[in-house]
Each structure stands twice: as C-alpha cells, then as structure tokens.
Design a protein around this nucleic acid. Structure first.
Length: 568
RNA sequence: CGGGGCGUAGCGCAGUCCGGUUAGCGCGCCUGCCUUGGGAGCAGGAAGCCGAUGGUUCGAAUCCAUUCGCCCCGACCA
C-alpha cells in the first residue's frame, strides 16, 4: 500500500478526551475515530490490526477443533426471560422494538442463543462434545464507558461456547481453551497474568482471567512474589502476617467512654493508636440468618467470600434499626462481646489480635483490651477480607504483590445453568436425560489492541509486535524523486511480490515528518532510501523497537527482511 | 445515578469573572516561492450560528434559566 492511497489520518496533537497512552496513540495514529461515548469506528489501519488478532485467534481455535459460526446481534427478549437473566443483565442490554412492537435486545453475550441452537440441532450425545465460537460486535450499555476502546459500549469480542456430556470432557475443553488463550496472547505480544477469577453474572464453577499487565488497567491482580499463585481482588486468598504478639500479656477488659465516636478515624485519635488496634464488628444478614462479622479495623470485608463461606444466596449489611435491635446500640458501637444467639464470624486478621478495641454494644462506650477467645467465643475464623500489602500468599507464605491489568480474556466452566433452562438436554448411553455441560470462553478483541499498545510503545508512538503489525515494513524514500524514487519503487515492488506487507510513504513531505509518522504508527521495520547511502549502493534498515540501523545492498534486502520478520 | 470539569474553525486552546467595534492564537488545510537525514522557512488565503433553546439588556461567546453532548472520580463491570 502506498501512503497516498491509504487512509491514515495521523495527528500531532494529543486528543483532548483521551488520558491513557493507548487511547491517545490509537487516535493519534489514525486507528480509531470516536462517534459518541463508547462508540468507535475502526479506521483502515485499526481494522488491519483487529484482523491480525482475529486471524491469530482463528488459527489457535482451529488447532483445538473449535468451530466458527455467527449469531444475530439482535435477540428476542423471551429467550432471556427463559434463562432468567433478563432482570440481572437488564441494565447493560440496549432494548429495541420492531415495527410490530416485539421486544428485542442488543446481545451483550450469546449463551442463550448458542444453547438454543444446540438444543434444536444436536440430537445425540454421539455428536458431542462441540466447541463453537464467533467473532462479533457486542453491545453493552456500560454505566461508564472509558479508556477509549478498553471499556467501550460497542466492542469486538470473540466468544466461544462448549457443550459436553460429561464434566471430564468439559474440563478437557476448558483446559484446551486455557492453553490456546496463552498462545494467542503470547502471539499478540502480550505479557499476561492468568488468574483465578470470579464467575460473576455468568455463573458457573470455575474461571480464569487473562489479564494484560498495565498501569492503567481496571483490574487488580494479586499475585505471589515467588510462586505462581495469582488471582483477582474478588477471589484472592491470603494469609495474614503474624506479628510477634507472643508474650504480650492479655490485660483486663476495660470499658471506656467514647461519646459520639462511631468511626474508626475518630477512635484512632482518641485512643492514639492505629486502625490495626480495632476490631470492626459488622452485622450481616443472609437469607434468614444474622451474623456478626469481625475484621481488623484497617481492612475491608469481601462480601463475596463471606457469602460463599456462609453458603448464603445473598448477604447484606443490616439496616440501622436492625442493628439497634440486635446489638442494643447504635451503628458504630457494635462489638463481639455480649451478642447472644448470633454466630461471630471472624476474619483471620482477628485471630492474633491482643488487647484490641471494640464497640461495647452500648451507646458511647467501647471496650479496651478485648481478647477474642477470652472475652467472646468466635464461631469460626475465615479468610473473608480483601488482601492488602503485607498479606502473604496462601500457598507459599511469601509476600503478595498487587498489579493493575486489563482483562483481555476469560474462560468459565458454566455447568448446566443454561442448558437446563433452555432444554439442551440429551440422553446418555444409559438412557438418562442429561443437561449438557457448558463452558464459555471470551476474548476482548478490540481491547486487546489497546492492551498491546499499553505494553508496546515509547514516547514516539506505538511499537507493534511483529504478528499484530498492520504492515511489517515501511519504505521511506527521503525525497520521492529521481533516483531515490526509482529505487524506492523497485524495492516496494520487490517486497510486495515477495508477500511482505509493506507500506510506502510516497508523500511529498520532509524526512523528519515521515520518520515521525512511521514511528507513531509503529511499523516494526523501516527501509530508508536516501541520496548519500544510495551513492554507496546501499539502503538502510532501521528497527523501530531498538533504533538499530544497518546498511545493506538492495539485492540482499528480501532475505534480510524475511530474516527480521521471523526473528523480531 | 452521585460528585467534579469541559463544549469557541478539522485538531489543541485563549477570550467568559468584570457584557461594548470586525472573536483571537498554535497546529492542520489551500496558493506560491524555497527547502529535503528526525514533525523546516517566507508570503498570501479559506475556514466559526462561540453546543442548543429561551430569557435579561440599547447591546450577549460573556449574565440568568433550561437542555443536549463529552471527559474525569465513584458506585458497577464478559
């Protein structure tokens, strides 16, 4: 492609509405153009990159015998009522009515649709397992679109769904997809953490997230300094560092007057000690039961973990009046001592606390020198807090570290949630009706572009990893005239006839201008043709990433380029 | 949805408090000259319903009200 024929609207100034690197660079290098909040057009260069990623995905999917299909974006409301997800997903679904006033939604995902296909078209267990996928625009009416293409409302996603008769088969596919994802993101040039993840609205039993590490990411990855343990914030297990509290004497319990002091900050001043000296007591309600949850004053309860451990469907903080009824005191003065008939659930951070401060379940009073075990009976110690710096790995006891990342892929074991609701049920060889066991596997294609840029750029622009580069080579004639033009044309033709994806900057611009654009759009290899080097019978090759320059004879160019393409 | 910010030429911005000729600047664009190894220089030029609507006023980009859009923080999140 010659630049003059292409459409690559680069801009020097950084766009006003972008504040992360990938977004700025995608706009500046002419990859995308915003139509409206969360809606982006992919301009030719951007689409080329998308296609590169898609073809990597397709290759790796097909190696694992996954098969591609395409489902409608518009979906009838009824099917979502059937799967009982309409309410849950209602907020992110854009609704639309047709001329007959039938109700439709713009599909945020396709579990329902694929399950419907399978329910109708697969009639024997002998045809299973099957693993389908599609690559398509999805629409989610995000509460707050942001970070350019990273959290857009319309975005391109590869979504895959597997159907199996047995758990073992299903796990095999899960494993296959897990492996394929690793390869895909590696080929995309991404440094990904694979982490244990929450299944969220998808439901199901097991899930891993592929998260591209980047400072701007929306996800926090919790990982171990030395072993392979990694999880997202929601799921991360942890051990609490045991301070050397051995030998600290348990002092006698004292009641202290604390008029009007409800918040930990107010109390830290009063008692002149840090929040770590306090035990927060939170009253939670499950479906029916009530729990008192204890956690160290500086930590937050992870309600997901709590709900999970307590085997409750929902778990909520009690209302103010209920707290008064249960504890006998206002919010802010709850404590573990004297709570009758309510199980005390303590976070592991409480286990080794000595002489702590807690509410007294009487207004304007706190207890000092509270020692769990001595002063109250803890029903159970559980890991129900969010990890913080200083917490230790659940596996190996080394330190946990925290990194930000962009979630680019996630794999789920779904179980039979959708198959049973949408009657994807088959008889097995024992003539028993079995709902199919499903898995689902997503890749955010468009946000992968942003993630690649986050990880591969410098002050001058994008540095495309070879496999995702829209062009491998850019030919830059310093002046597109005379001998230089002739040589440039010749080299351009030669590269093209050797199937090298090449862009030639044939514009009548000054060299510096062309160099800056080439750097901005991130083409991995520059071939520079200038008067001086040409007089030596040479042309120049410059590597975008390293800046390394070599001069070679035009005759050796093709070999050299091919060598660079495979080695970079 | 709560909090904050911003809408002025294609892009980035000044002007708005404190109303007053013809609304500016940089980049980009067009013409010409010149230049060609890291976003050149000179000369000339085109381009704006000052987001929209309504009000106040002799007079509104500027003040008031309403409204729409966009961005950031939070809640939320394959």
């Amino acid at each position: 492609m010659k630049w003059s024929k292409a459409f690559i609207p680069t801009v020097k100034e950084t766009p006003q509405d972008a504040d992360i690197v990938s977004h700025k660079l995608m706009v500046r290098s002419g990859l995308i153009h915003k139509l409206s909040s969360g809606l982006y057009s992919y301009l030719p260069l951007g689409l080329m990159v998308i296609r590169k990623i898609e073809s990597i995905i397709k290759e790796e999917m097909s190696k694992k015998d996954a098969i591609e299909l395409l489902m409608p974006i518009l979906q009838p409301k009824e099917i979502w009522l059937k799967s009982e997800r309409y309410e849950m997903m209602s907020e992110v679904m854009l609704k639309a009515n047709d001329r007959e006033n039938r109700e439709f939604i713009l599909g945020p995902t396709h579990e329902e649709i694929i399950t419907d296909i399978v329910a109708h078209k697969i009639d024997s267990y002998r045809s299973l397992p099957k693993n389908f996928y599609q690559i398509q625009a999805k629409f989610r009416d995000e509460i707050r679109p942001r970070f350019g293409v990273i959290r857009a409302r319309e975005f391109i996603m590869k979504d895959g769904y597997s159907f199996s008769m047995t758990q073992i088969e299903s796990e095999k596919i899960y494993q296959d997809m897990y492996e394929a994802y690793g390869v895909i993101f590696k080929r995309c040039g991404l440094d990904c953490a694979v982490i244990e993840a929450d299944t969220g609205v998808m439901g199901g039993r097991k899930s891993h997230e592929f998260t591209a590490l980047a400072d701007v990411g929306e996800d926090t990855v919790v990982s171990c300094k030395s072993c392979t343990y990694a999880a997202n914030m929601e799921l991360a297990k942890r051990q609490v560092q045991e301070k050397s509290i051995m030998g600290i004497r348990q002092d006698p319990l004292i009641e202290v007057s604390t008029p009007g002091m409800k918040r930990v900050e107010e109390l830290t001043d009063f008692f002149s000690c840090g929040p770590m000296c306090f035990i927060k007591t939170l009253i939670y309600k499950g479906d029916e039961k009530i729990y008192a949850v204890l956690i160290r004053g500086d930590l937050e309860v992870n309600e997901n973990k709590l709900r999970h451990y307590l085997k409750e469907q929902v778990i909520n903080l009690a209302e103010a009046e209920e707290i008064i009824r249960i504890t006998g005191a206002d919010v802010g003065f709850s404590g573990p001592i004297g709570l009758k008939d309510i199980p005390l659930i303590a976070d592991i951070s409480v286990r080794n606390m000595t002489n702590a401060i807690t509410g007294a379940n009487k207004n304007n009073l706190h207890y000092k020198n509270v020692n769990p075990g001595r002063d109250c009976v803890i029903y159970d110690y559980l890991d129900i807090g969010f990890p913080v710096t200083g917490d230790l790995c659940p596996n190996c006891n080394d330190e946990l570290v925290f990194k930000r990342g962009i979630e680019v892929g996630q794999v789920f074991q779904l179980g039979t949630k959708y198959s049973s609701k949408l009657s994807a049920v088959l008889q097995n060889e024992k003539r028993e009706d079995v709902p199919l066991i499903m898995g689902c596997y997503g890749i955010g294609v468009s946000r992968t572009v942003a993630a690649i840029i986050e990880q591969n750029h410098d002050e001058f622009g994008i540095i495309w990893p070879m496999e995702t580069a829209p062009f491998k080579v850019i030919v830059i004639p310093l002046v597109y005239k005379d001998e230089i033009k002739k040589t440039a044309d010749m080299i351009y033709d030669r590269l093209r006839s050797n199937n090298v994806e090449v862009l030639m900057d044939d514009r009548n611009e000054r060299p510096g201008f062309k160099f800056a654009d080439a750097d901005l759009i991130g083409i991995p290899i520059k071939v520079i043709i200038g008067k001086k080097t040409l007089q030596e019978g040479k042309i120049e090759i410059k590597i975008r990433k390293t800046g390394e320059v070599q001069k070679i004879s035009p005759d050796h160019l093709i070999n050299k380029i091919n060598e660079l393409i495979t080695s970079l």
